[in-house]
Simulated assay, not measured.
Amino acid sequence: MIVGVVERDEGTVVIDGRPHDARNTKTKALIGYVPQELALYQDLTARQNLWFFAQLHGLRGRQGKSKVSEVLETIGLADRADEAVSGYSGGMARRLNIGIGLLNRPRLLILDEPTAGVDPQSRNSILESVQRLAAEGVAVLYTTHYMEEAERLCDRVGIVDLGQMKAEGTRRELVDMVGENDQVLLQVDGDLDRVRRALADAPQVRQVSGEGSRVDLLVEGARAVLPRLFEVVAGAGAAVRSAEVREPDLEAVFLHLTGKALRD
C-alpha cells in the first residue's frame, strides 16, 4: 500500500509532505522499493540490469551511465559489474537488488527483508550500506525478522504480529513499555558483603546478587545512574575493576507483547 501497488482500505500515506496513492506517479518517483524476491535479469550483467532500470526512471545518456556507475560503487560491485548475474553469490545479488532501488535517488527507501539467505559478510555489507544511506538523509522503512538488525539500524521500531501493530516507538520506549530493568555486572575489589548492602540502598537498584568478586544488579535506567553506583562502591571502601551494562533487547519485548517466538 505504501509503494502504491495496492489501494489502501483506510488511512493516509504522506511522502515528503505530499499525499500519496496508487495513482500518484509524482510521489511514486520518490520511492525506492527493494522486494524480498530478487527482481533481476539473470542473463544480464549488473551494469546492464542497472542501465535497464535507470531508463525506466527516465535516466538516459551520460546522466544515466553516471548514475549506474555511482550505484555500482555504492553497493561494492564496480569490479564485478560486467559479469552475468547468474554467476553472482546470493549476497552479491541482494546488493544489486538494493542498487536498483537507489537509482532514482529516493527520499523513501523500502527494504523487504534484504538480508534473507545471505552470508554473514554480505549481510554486514548490506547493513553498513543502509546505515550510510540513512546518514545521508534517506528515510528507510526496513522490514526484518532479525531483531539484532532492528536494534542496529532503526530509530523507531514497529512490532507487527498477525497483521496488527502491537507497539511502535524508539527502542528505549518499547523496553520501558514492558517494564524491563537493565542488568549491571560489576567486578569489584573490596568487602563484597558491604558493597552489596550499600548498593541495595542505591537509587534505581531493584535487585542485588552475585558471587565471588562479581556483583549483579537489576537497575532501572542503568546508564544514567552508573556514575552514582561507582560512587556507592567507592563509599563502601571498594573499587570497580570492570562494569558491563546489558539492556533488555527487542526480542524480549516481542515475546512479552505477543507471547510467541519470532516467526513469519
Rank of each mutant, 00 (worst) to 15 (best):
E73L: 09
R123H: 08
N181M: 04
V130Q: 00
A236D: 13
R107L: 07
G117M: 07
L44Q: 11
A93Q: 14
L199Q: 00
L229K: 00
E136K: 14
R206Q: 15
R206H: 11
I15C: 11
L162C: 12
L217A: 08
A81T: 11
L102M: 12
N24L: 04
P114W: 06
D43H: 13
V184G: 02
L218A: 14
D182H: 07
A134P: 01
A224K: 13
V68L: 09
R214T: 13
A116G: 08
R123L: 06
L199R: 01
E113Y: 02
I110P: 00
L96Q: 10
P106E: 03
V184I: 05
V71L: 08
M147C: 14
L218D: 15
E149T: 05
G17Y: 12
L72K: 10
E247N: 06
D112C: 14
A81W: 03
V14M: 08
E247D: 05
A46W: 00
L72S: 12
G137Q: 05
Q48S: 07
V160S: 12
K67H: 04
V233W: 00
M147R: 09
D119L: 00
D191V: 07
Q204Y: 07
D9G: 10
M147A: 12
E180P: 04
K28G: 06
R62V: 09
V188E: 02
G76I: 05
G190F: 08
N181C: 05
S89M: 02
P19V: 06
R214H: 10
L186Y: 01
A234S: 14
S213T: 15
Q204T: 09
Q42D: 15
C154P: 03
L217E: 09
L262A: 15
Q183S: 14
P114A: 13
S86W: 08
A239R: 14
T45E: 07
W51G: 13
F53C: 01
E148V: 02
R62D: 13
G259Q: 08
P114I: 04
V245G: 10
K166D: 03
I100L: 13
E220P: 03
E10I: 10
R132V: 05
R197F: 12
E136D: 13
G91N: 01
H256D: 10
G259C: 09
A84W: 01
L185F: 11
T27R: 00
P120K: 06
V208R: 00
R228P: 09
E70R: 06
G259L: 05
Y88S: 11
V160Y: 08
V215T: 01
V215P: 00
A200S: 13
L255K: 15
L229I: 02
L162S: 12
H145G: 05
M92G: 02
D193L: 06
R156W: 08
V71Y: 05
G237W: 00
S89G: 07
D249Q: 07
E37W: 07
E247F: 05
L185A: 15
